[in-house]
Design a binder for these strands. Structure first.
Length: 480
RNA sequence: CGGGGCGUAGCGCAGUCCGGUUAGCGCGCCUGGUUCGGGACCAGGAGGUCGGAGGUUCAAAUCCUCUCGCCCCGACCA
């Protein structure tokens, strides 16, 4: 196994990010520009993410379905903002079976159009509502510049699509999903997020409102980690998705769409990892515990083997994902480095010394090594995993808070974005003029108009930029 | 599309300016042995269209022209 050297974060953060991915074998560049291969160690994380999210979607009444990859080009054009927003990013198939197609097919950049065209057939009455769908799939958005996981031409995601009888119900759905995303980010990824609504310039093409979760990465750039859109009746009108109301009238459905993608893996890396490689939060670690046996003689080998197998069994019985590294071609120290680079949260070292003392040495990826009694190895390891999960979240949260500035002035905003970066909270008049000027001069965008929980107290009264009365509070940052 | 960097063994690189035997080095890989508690060592091996095409030359990894691709920064982007 060729190991990949890791550039320190302080030297070159972008290189560090790439190096961590290569070292941990999460992904690789593909022969096709802008695309990536997700390798087993990376895909394993995605599978765990899928399981967790899918469970939450099912619990809230959603069902999975699958809609086709190809969308007639004319469908995209039916919603004006939608086509305008996505036109530059489309991959279009013009030939099939050796012939030019009558109508070009778009490789889905998102599936609203094809889904609403189908919902129009399936929905007749308010009794058919709500429709709560989700699909796990790949999508393609042509990008000028790509980065592994964070922005690739093709990526994997889930897209939820729901149709409701009332505006309020759709709004509630969009909000509820945002809560799921937040819970997932914090409880599974140990990645704290702020929630709120996007400005018009940042919202999804075709949405009435876009809600989002935003996280702050280690380099103090923001990452949009998930979005949930209240679509109003925009797509329903474009695709004539109507239903008969209880009163006998005809109305267009109210709808939502929402998604998170393999970009989350990039967020996970950028939130937790260090100069030694990946740090994977235990709940999303394909391997949570690696057991490294140590022996010299055949006699020792037998005793160690027996103990290791016993430990592995009890950890598995305790619901943990364990790997026993029984390779005899590597010294223990070399294995330590390898598994650290791979991000495995807990390592158990078991040699003759441990066997004779009835213990195992438990090393945490986040630092620290201590013996645990073999009789308590499962609960002790479980506790270590839980502690690591909690520590990662609280460390990330305090880092975010240390790099958040409240009630910034114009000068502070400029200086901050030009220097350290981070989240800048301030008053905003709401004008596109100020928003654009700030973007031009600081390269920072409004990440969110934060939800009440995240707002400053007292609320800012004046616009950071123009000094006019503030209509809302905004959070600025440079973003991925 | 602009600016910068770069394509030589699986990975990381030297050699290129100033053309000259069989193109090297480290890591990894294979075989054998000794090792084994934080990246082991010795010996012997395998592995190359020097990104591609054309040109100059007695001779090209090296010089010239064209071309393909990758990374970083920018423009752009739920």
């Amino acid at each position: 196994m060729a190991e990949h050297a890791i550039t320190p974060r302080a030297k070159d953060f972008s290189e560090w990010y790439n190096d961590v991915i290569m070292r941990a074998q999460l992904a690789d560049y593909s022969p096709v520009r802008g695309c990536m291969v997700i390798r087993p160690r990376g895909y394993g994380i995605w599978e765990l993410m899928q399981q967790a999210l899918d469970g939450m979607f099912k619990e809230t009444g959603h069902q999975n379905a699958y809609f086709p990859l190809f969308i007639p080009q004319s469908f995209l054009a039916k919603e004006a903002d939608h086509v305008e927003g996505f036109a530059p990013q489309l991959a279009v198939v013009t030939h099939g079976g050796g012939k030019e197609l009558d109508e070009p097919l778009v490789v889905r950049p998102t599936s609203e159009t094809i889904i609403y065209s189908m919902l129009s057939k399936w929905i007749q009455s308010y009794r058919d509502l709500p429709v709560l769908l989700n699909q796990w799939c790949n999508i393609v958005r042509w990008e000028m510049r790509t980065r592994l996981f964070l922005r690739t031409t093709e990526f994997l995601w889930q897209e939820g699509h729901t149709a409701h009888a009332t505006s309020d119900e759709a709004e509630t759905e969009a909000r509820m999903i945002l809560g799921i995303y937040r819970r997932f980010a914090e409880e599974w990824m140990a990645m704290p997020v702020i929630t709120g609504v996007k400005t018009d310039s940042e919202k999804f093409a075709g949405a009435v409102r876009t809600y989002a979760i935003e996280a702050l990465m280690q380099d103090n750039k923001a990452l949009q980690a998930g979005t949930s859109h209240f679509l109003g009746q925009n797509f329903a009108k474009a695709f004539d998705t109507t239903f008969q109301t209880a009163a006998g009238g005809l109305d267009h459905v109210w709808s939502t769409s929402w998604g998170v993608s393999t970009r989350l893996i990039g967020g996970l890396i950028l939130t937790h990892s260090d100069d030694n490689g990946l740090i994977c939060p235990p709940r999303l670690a394909p391997i949570q515990v690696v057991i490294v046996p140590i022996w010299k003689t055949d006699t020792e080998r037998e005793a160690v083997l027996q103990t290791c197998n016993g430990v592995m069994d009890s950890l598995k019985a305790g619901g943990m994902r364990v790997h026993l590294d029984w390779r005899d071609s590597m010294k223990p120290g070399a294995k330590y480095y390898e598994w650290e680079g791979n991000g495995v949260p807990v390592r158990l070292e078991i040699g003759p010394r441990e066997v004779s003392q009835g213990q195992a040495m438990l090393a945490r990826r986040t630092g620290g090594k201590a013996p645990v009694r073999l009789s308590e190895v499962a609960p002790a390891t479980r506790a270590a995993l839980d502690a690591i999960q909690q520590d990662l979240l609280s460390q990330a949260r305090s880092r975010r808070e240390q790099n958040s500035v409240r009630n910034v002035t114009k000068d502070q905003l400029v200086q901050l974005m030009d220097g350290a970066g981070g989240f800048a909270y301030g008053g905003f008049c709401g004008s596109g003029t100020c928003e654009n000027e700030i973007k031009d001069q600081t390269k920072a965008t409004v990440r969110l108009l934060p939800d009440p929980e995240f707002r400053s107290n007292p609320a800012p009264t004046k616009c950071v930029w123009c000094g006019q009365p503030a209509t809302v509070e905004a959070v600025w940052a440079r973003a991925y």
